[in-house]
Design a protein around this nucleic acid. Structure first.
Lengths: 148, 148
DNA sequence: GAAGATTGAGGCTTCAATCTTC
DNA sequence: GAAGATTGAAGCCTCAATCTTC
């Protein structure tokens, strides 16, 4: 990736991801990162990679997916050895999801792939328009969310 | 809908739709229009409502969906009495898709619902930012398409 | 009974293979 | 053989119903 991208690339990534989730369009991303993962699996691992242990509901609301979907999704990630799925001690109803060693490595790979993808996208936007694009995407996400 | 929306609303609609299709996110729109149609069915009817008869491939590329998906989709629309599916006279391989009377009425209803939805969205964007939002969407679609 | 998670049923999509017509 | 359309197999998602724990 070119050095041209600069520090605003992460912001584009965040904003576009937010837009996608806001619109409820998560599913169709067609894994642009080139990793052997479904789009939602990539998002889940990325979210879990943030560090804090999440419950199924937490993960679901962040990904904007149904809890049933997330349940099956996590089941696959666990089967692949990337996620650790434990019951919370203080409350037997909640699940305490976290990444395994292998899961964290995958999270890093996904993060890198994503960064590259978004950097390419960013490079294709005229430099003097970039700031406006980011600001505007934020407005859109807000507007879409408000419409619900 | 408020009069405030003005003439730029159609542009927002066009741009956002283009973005959605460009990202390949068609499927998940969750029929925001409130019509008893799946998102892709709504898009298909809208596209067919433009007037010209399309082949399966034409419709597929406009909706950015696989030909197999479109084949089944059109099958449903035909079963519901909205689409007329004929073989082209000059080339027996091609299909000549068009809307029936009922299909055209549905197309109008969908168009109206969509217009309302996008008008609401547009109204939620600060007036002095609207032009920037549209520009952004345009730039994004271009950038995304260029990434493929 | 409420909250959190899981399971069952059905819809939409993609990819691959197949059929038909040129 | 190539182009256009259809069919088969499998993945991901939503909604609804069910099970478990508080």
């Amino acid at each position: 990736m070119q050095a041209a991208s600069g520090v605003l690339t992460p912001a584009l990534q965040v904003q576009l991801t937010a837009l996608i989730r806001a619109l409820g369009l998560l599913e169709a991303e067609r894994t642009p990162c080139g990793q052997p993962l479904s789009p939602s699996a990539a998002h889940a691992i990325l979210e879990l990679g943030r560090g804090e242990a999440l419950s199924l509901g937490d993960l679901g609301s962040r990904l904007r997916l149904e809890k049933s979907t997330v349940s099956r999704l996590v089941g696959q990630l666990e089967a692949r050895g990337w996620v650790d799925r434990r019951r919370a001690q203080h409350d037997g109803r909640l699940l305490r999801l976290s990444l395994t060693e292998a899961g964290q490595q995958m999270a890093e790979r996904v993060a890198t792939s994503r960064a590259t993808f978004f950097a390419q996208l960013y490079d294709r936007i005229p430099p003097h328009r970039r700031a406006a694009v980011l600001e505007t995407l934020e407005l859109l996400v807000e507007a879409v969310d408000a419409t619900r």
